[in-house]
Amino acid sequence: MTGQALYAVLGCGLFCLGFHALVVAAHPLRRLLAVNVMGSSVFLVLVAGAAPGDPLPQALVITGIVVAVAATALGLNLLLRLAVPAAADEPADGEGGS
């Protein structure tokens, strides 16, 4: 088994680990972590499956990493917006009264 194949198999393992966490995790932030791990594992398979030093999958993966961070930021903001009430939603007597 070569190093490349090793990383491709590792990517498959990480994908299923992330998938499992995505299904069983309760906290939405944990699910976001799981989706990120799954994405990274797909990148790993993509680069490890190509010829060593092939620039095309590398460029695609760089694009993918930036898209992943944008999606994570959007997900985190949605998550916080769900968990933390906005200033307008707060009761007049503040949080201590609840």
Partner: peptide, 15 residues
């Protein structure tokens, strides 16, 4: 290790 230094830079800075 996979000879992808560009991706390594992006991963360290962004990922």
């Amino acid at each position: 290790r996979l000879q992808a230094p560009d991706v390594a830079l992006a991963e360290a800075a962004i990922g």
